[in-house]
């Protein structure tokens, strides 16, 4: 079983969570001034890292809160979780 530590509820089974993709992607301030290519870049292009990745998760079937997680995509080791709006400590 894969256990995730929700910053609010504590350790829970992964089946209660849903994945929200790469974290810390900032929405462009003036979308209308962007080219289609730049807009597509913001919408679709992701780093797809092998190794430590900062990503968003949602405790969908628990407290329904979003949070961030630093996870190693090569072995699923979760290094730490932190709240929305916070920057990773490492």
């Amino acid at each position: 079983m894969f256990i995730i530590k929700c910053p609010y509820c504590g350790e829970r089974d992964h089946s209660e969570f849903s994945y929200g993709g790469e974290a810390h992607i900032v929405r462009p301030k003036q979308p209308s001034e962007l080219s289609d290519g730049q807009w597509a870049e913001y919408l679709f292009t992701r780093k797809n890292i092998k190794g430590l990745q900062y990503e968003r998760w949602n405790h969908a079937h628990g407290c329904r809160r979003w949070f961030n997680m630093a996870r190693d995509t090569s072995n699923d080791k979760i290094h730490f979780v932190y709240q929305m709006g916070e920057k990773p400590t490492k």
Partner: peptide, 19 residues
Amino acid sequence: CPYDFDSEDFLDNKVVQTI
């Protein structure tokens, strides 16, 4: 249910949201 009902945290008058 994936929740561990034997958990030390799950005492009387506790509430848990799960599947």
